[in-house]
Design a protein around this nucleic acid. Structure first.
Lengths: 197, 197
DNA sequence: TATTTTTTCGACCGCTGGTCAAGTATGCTT
DNA sequence: AAGCATACTTGACCAGCGGTCGAAAAAATA
C-alpha cells in the first residue's frame, strides 16, 4: 500500500482512540512504524496530513451521494430526503466523525465541514435546479442557496459546537423546513423529512 | 486597573499587530510588563485568557447591539439592516478577528462563533417577533429562524473557513436575501442591505 | 560492479504552554 | 515595632511540539 496512505491510516487510528489521545507527528510516525523524518518526505506539514485525511475519508461518501442522485428519478423533494438519509447513514459509520467533535480536533473538524459543504453543495444545487425546471421550486441562485442550506446543517446542527437537546434540534429542523418551503416556494410538507426520523 | 485586564489589553495589542502570529504567553507577559509566571496567577491556561478576551470584547459589541435595537423605532427590515451594520462595523474594528481565523486557534474560534450566535440570536428573534406582530413577516419559530440566519452568517461567511471572493460573497448574500424575503413572506427588497455596499 | 537517485532516519533546533520553589510586598495582630 | 500570615511576583526550568538536516541505507540505473 501507498506509504502516504499508511501515514493517513495511522493518523485515523489515533483520532479514533477514545481516550482523547494526543496526535503529534511523532505519535503518527510511531503508529505508522516509520521514522518521524519520513513523514516529512511525503507531506510538507502536519496541516497537509490533516487535509489529505479529510479528503480521503469524505471522498467516497460524497461519491456515493453523487451516484445515488444521478441514478434516482425521484422528484426533487424526495431526492432531498434521499440525499439527506444517505449522507446521514454514511457518516454514522465513519468512526472518525465522532472524534472530530472533540475540542482538541477543532481544526480538522472545521476543515472537514468546509470540505463537506463544498463537495455536497453542487449536488444539492442540481436537485434545486431540477426542481426549478419541473416548477416545484422557485430559486434564482441554486448553488448559493444550496450552500446556505448546508451551512445551517454543518454549523447549527453540529454536536461538537452546540449541545442542543433532541427537542431543540427538532424545532430548528422544523423552522428550517418552513423557511425552505416558503423560500423555495415549494409544496407544504416537502421538507418534512428534515424533522421526521 | 485590574491586573487581569492589563493582561487582556496586552494580548489584544499583540493581536492587533500586523504579523499577528506571535502571541505566545511570554510575549503577552513582556508586553504587559510582568513576569510570565504572574500570568498564571490570574489565568489558569492560555485558553482561559482567550476566552476572557473574547468574552470582554464581544460583550460590549453585543450590548451595543441590544441597546441600539431597544432604542430604535424603525420597522423590522430596517432594524435588521441597522443591526447588521452595527455589528459589522464593530467587529471590523476588532483586530482580534484576524487571529481567530488561523488554523491553530480553531478551537477558540469555534467557541467565539458559538458565543456570537447564542448572544445575537435572541436579539434577532425579537426583531422577527416584532415583524410578525406588525404583519410584515410571517414566522412561526422566531428564535430558531434567527439561529438559522446567524449560522449562515457565522459559518458560510467566515473568512477563516472559506476563502470566497467579494463577488461570491455578494451572490451568497443575494441568495440569502431572496430566501429570507420569501421564507419570512417579507416585502421584496427588505433584505437588500445584505448585499449592498 | 559502480554510480546515481530515492527513501529512511532520529538526533537536534527553536519555541511553546505550563510549573514551581523561592522571594518580595502587603497588611493584620499583638 | 515586631512577628506573622497572606497575597503576589518571578524567571529558570520542563516536557512536548512541529519541523530540519546530514548521513546512511536501499533501490534503480548504468
Amino acid at each position: 500500500m501507498d506509504k502516504a496512505n499508511i501515514i493517513l491510516d495511522a493518523m485515523k487510528t489515533l483520532l479514533e482512540q477514545d481516550d482523547g489521545a494526543s496526535c503529534s507527528v511523532s505519535d503518527i510516525a510511531k503508529k505508522a512504524g516509520i521514522g518521524k523524518g519520513s513523514i516529512y518526505y511525503y507531506f510538507k506539514s502536519k496541516d497537509e496530513i490533516f487535509d489529505a485525511l479529510v479528503e480521503r475519508e469524505y471522498h467516497q461518501i460524497i461519491e456515493n451521494c453523487r451516484v445515488l442522485m444521478n441514478r434516482s428519478h425521484a422528484d426533487p423533494a424526495q431526492k432531498f430526503a434521499l440525499l439527506f438519509r444517505s449522507y446521514r447513514s454514511s457518516t454514522s459509520l465513519l468512526a472518525m466523525d465522532h472524534y472530530l467533535h472533540q475540542q482538541q480536533n477543532a481544526a480538522i473538524h472545521q476543515k472537514s465541514l468546509a470540505k463537506i459543504l463544498s463537495s455536497l453543495s453542487p449536488i444539492v444545487a442540481d436537485i434545486i435546479r431540477q426542481g426549478v425546471e419541473e416548477k416545484s421550486f422557485r430559486c434564482e441562485k441554486p448553488q448559493e442557496t444550496a450552500e446556505i442550506i448546508l451551512s445551517v446543517y454543518c454549523f447549527l446542527y453540529d454536536p461538537g459546537i452546540f449541545k442542543w437537546t433532541p427537542e431543540q434540534l427538532k424545532e430548528k429542523a422544523s423552522a428550517l423546513a418552513t423557511l425552505l418551503e416558503n423560500g423555495l416556494s415549494a409544496a407544504k410538507g416537502s421538507f418534512q423529512f428534515l424533522y421526521q426520523t
